Amino acid sequence: MEQISRARVGEFLRRLEEFDFSGALKLCTDSAVVWQNDGEGEQAMDKRLDHFKSFVTTVASLRYDVNHQVGEANEVFQQHVLRLEMTDGSSAEVHAAVYFHLDGELIHRIEEYVYTVPATSAA
């Protein structure tokens, strides 16, 4: 089950990189929630993905670089850097420690602790 959990988290991140938000949502339970330390508190997954969708309107590409990942039967903890290339040519990084809880083969809860590195100008 650990391999399934880690694979599901990887697939979820790939869907986000492809801006496939409906595909990402299909990898989650109907009652999935996300908590992030951004002051928004806990939100339903579909609402959080809507927020993410509006956030990436100025993003040309994004990539998750996973630095560390451990998993158990229904849990995955990872540290990653989300690298953003903006449409204006600038770039930014979001460093995160993320806990994923799965119910069966679907993501049920995400807890995300993030630190955003300010955008750098295009050279």
Rank of each mutant, 00 (worst) to 15 (best):
L102N: 01
A92E: 11
D103I: 11
A60R: 13
S90K: 08
S61G: 08
N37G: 02
E93Y: 09
G41N: 00
D88A: 07
R14S: 15
V81T: 10
F21G: 10
L102H: 01
A32P: 13
V76F: 02
Y64Q: 01
V98C: 06
H95Q: 13
E75M: 06
G89N: 01
Q78V: 05
K26W: 13
R83S: 15
L84W: 06
V34N: 03
G23D: 03
S22C: 15
R48D: 14
V70N: 02
D65W: 03
A44P: 15
Q43A: 12
R48Y: 15
N37V: 13
Q78T: 04
R48I: 14
A96M: 06
Y99P: 00
V66W: 00
A60E: 14
G89Q: 04
K26Y: 13
L25Q: 03
V59A: 05
A73L: 05
D46T: 12
V33A: 09
R83L: 15
S61T: 06
D46F: 05
S31Q: 12
V70D: 00
W35M: 10
F19R: 09
K47N: 10
H80N: 07
E42R: 12
D50H: 07
W35S: 04
L16D: 06
R14Y: 07
M45Y: 07
V34F: 06
E42W: 06
E17D: 07
D50I: 08
L84N: 00
V81R: 02
F55S: 08
E72M: 00
L49T: 03
S31M: 13
S22V: 15
M86V: 12
D50W: 03
N74Y: 07
E42A: 09
G39M: 08
G39L: 08
E85Q: 14
Q69R: 03
A24R: 00
